[in-house]
Amino acid sequence: MIDKNKLRGSDIISGGLFGVLGIYILIESFQMPLSDSYGGVTTHWYVSPALMPIIIGIGMILLAIVIIVNGIRNGGKEQLAAERNEKRGKPFIDDNKIRFYAVMLPLVSIVFINLNTIDFYLNAVMYLLFTTCFFYLEDIVFLKKGITIATVFEIIIAALHFSGVDRKLTQVFFASMDLIGLAAVIVMNVSLIMYAKKAGNEVYMKKAKHIMLVSYIMPLLIVPLFKFALRVPMPHEGGFINLMSMVYYALR
């Protein structure tokens, strides 16, 4: 959490956002059936589906006003102005923003881009490998390098997936998208090892080993646990999970 004394400035903004949401809720609510019959139930004001949203909308606006007023009264305006001055002259992209992007990139990729097109085992490996490479090494140079690799591959996968080309590719060969994911994993892994070797740092080599251990072994435990022991189908079952199934049915 931000330091409590600095909260009053941000209160004005967050309170404002809540106020806007409250107004939106009210606007939507008044478009719902307020009287008349809907679905075989005669609707009076008190039965209307809009009743609760209206209460929520009003409550939210009132509370937002209290929060904003409280913020202004306790020097929020001055804080906002001071923050703006502080930011002036500094580069827009700082370390903090890069780190936030580095957290979000693999997370958004695994859910919004890779989920329905890349084998879930590989997807999990990609997420783990990317995230651990970014942060476990604690090296800003490699962080930036890794982000570049991951971004390039995710752009390729996103382009193929959202244009629908991936479906044509999988018709030719069912795991063709998995090969692209595999390529991303290999490129990332190789550059990790090369970077660690080049640095000649013992700690880096050890960390690289840990990274690979976690990235490849953990999904190898988690995926079969859900798929075979708890019998939960995975979001996308491509080459790797099919291979696991083959092994599972051969052993059973």
Binding site: F174, L179, N189, V190, G239, N242, L243, M246
Partner: peptide, 22 residues
């Protein structure tokens, strides 16, 4: 490097196995 190579080999093996079992 070794790691990457072995992954590649494994993947080629399973892919061909899958084709055979269809």
């Amino acid at each position: 490097m070794k790691k990457a190579l072995s992954i590649l080999i494994i993947s080629i093996v399973f892919v061909s196995a899958l084709f055979a079992s269809g």
